[in-house]
């Protein structure tokens, strides 16, 4: 895959002196879904805003499809659609009018057939003549997505698109994202719902305090940074850790009848065999055991924590 967005040494310091981005470099591949994860204030929205032309960068360059976002802004912006975080819509215009406005604003000739299909895909066709102020929050969110797609962009930025959205609409949205991916649209999304990033993203970037901590293939990231845990359920509770098990760094559950053993599954010797022998040697009876892998959320939390510590 070739790169469609190329960010090089991008920094942003706001007027008040707050540094929102610190020397960020990133290549976004054509046709991929990239999820940007990060806590509030990490710099995700600033990064997206710079690429879209809403915020001026302090340093660094960004190119979209080989064109510089400042020198060739017309070429880059017509390729990009943005769904902002806030429900920023006019209250007194109809859904149809706002779609036509967005399409024209991005320099596209009117195309009622395309807009009709888009409205139908977003389940908004019945609401096309409704004033936006009369729509529910979820419907407004769909309208924002439709507006971003009205000019047929090849790159779509979704800034927290599912914040405050109910489960059903969230599923609809991800189905729409999947359709767009199949149509070849590159999608960059920020989300707080890490399980969603885990479910739909090809690659994941973690950003914190303006720094891009890691960007990698989702599976590779989970492979590299993920750990496994062996959950051992005992027949009876133990008050303290038997001496024979001291070398295994086990954690005792609150009830005293569960032990957790964290191990690296990629190592030749995981230590499980020795542990099981040691448990039997210590006279403990195993009732049940199963293993779980670290979720993307845990990887994310660990990365952000580690970054916070190093920054401090």
């Amino acid at each position: 895959m070739s790169s469609i967005v190329s960010i090089s040494n991008l920094s942003k310091t706001y007027e008040g002196g707050f540094q929102a981005l610190k020397n960020v470099s990133l290549d976004i591949q054509r046709g991929e879904i990239l999820a940007l994860l990060g806590p509030n204030g990490a710099g995700k929205t600033t990064l997206i805003s710079i690429i879209c032309g809403i915020v001026n960068p302090s340093q660094g360059t960004v190119s979209v499809d080989g064109c510089d976002i400042i020198k060739d802004y017309r070429l880059t912006r017509e390729r990009i659609g943005l769904v902002p975080q806030e429900l920023t819509l006019g209250a007194f215009e109809s859904v149809w009018d706002t779609f036509c406005f967005s399409r024209g604003l991005f320099g596209k000739k009117p195309n009622p057939q395309y807009l009709e299909q888009l409205l139908k895909d977003l389940s908004l066709w019945e609401k096309r003549n409704e004033m936006i102020m009369n729509l529910s929050g979820g419907m407004k969110r769909r309208v924002l997505i439709g507006k971003a797609l009205a000019h047929e962009p090849m790159i779509l930025f979704l800034d927290e698109p599912t914040a405050g959205v109910d489960v059903e609409l969230r599923k609809d949205m991800w189905a729409q994202v999947e359709r767009l991916r199949k149509a070849g649209v590159t999608i960059i999304l920020t989300t707080h719902y890490i399980e969603e990033a885990e479910a739909i993203a090809d690659r994941v970037g973690v950003i914190n305090q303006g720094e891009l901590l890691v960007v990698d293939d989702k599976l590779a990231l989970m492979h590299k940074l993920g750990k496994r845990q062996l959950m051992i359920e005992l027949e009876s509770s133990i008050g303290s850790m038997p001496e024979a098990l001291a070398g295994f760094k086990l954690e005792i559950g609150t009830e005293g009848d569960q032990l957790t053993y964290t191990y690296d599954p990629h190592k030749a010797n995981t230590g499980i065999d020795e542990l099981l022998k040691a448990l039997t040697g210590a006279g403990l009876v195993i009732k049940d055991l199963h293993s779980v892998k670290t979720s993307l959320e845990e990887i994310f939390v660990n990365l952000v924590k580690a970054n916070g510590r190093s920054a401090a």
């Binding site: 880059t76 819509l89 006019g90 967005s102």
Partner: peptide
């Protein structure tokens, strides 16, 4: 008004001079 409501994002991100 679009500045106040935030709708200005669309104009600023559009290919317009």
């Amino acid at each position: 008004f679009p500045r106040f409501t935030g709708q200005i994002y669309e104009v600023l991100s559009a290919p317009v001079s």
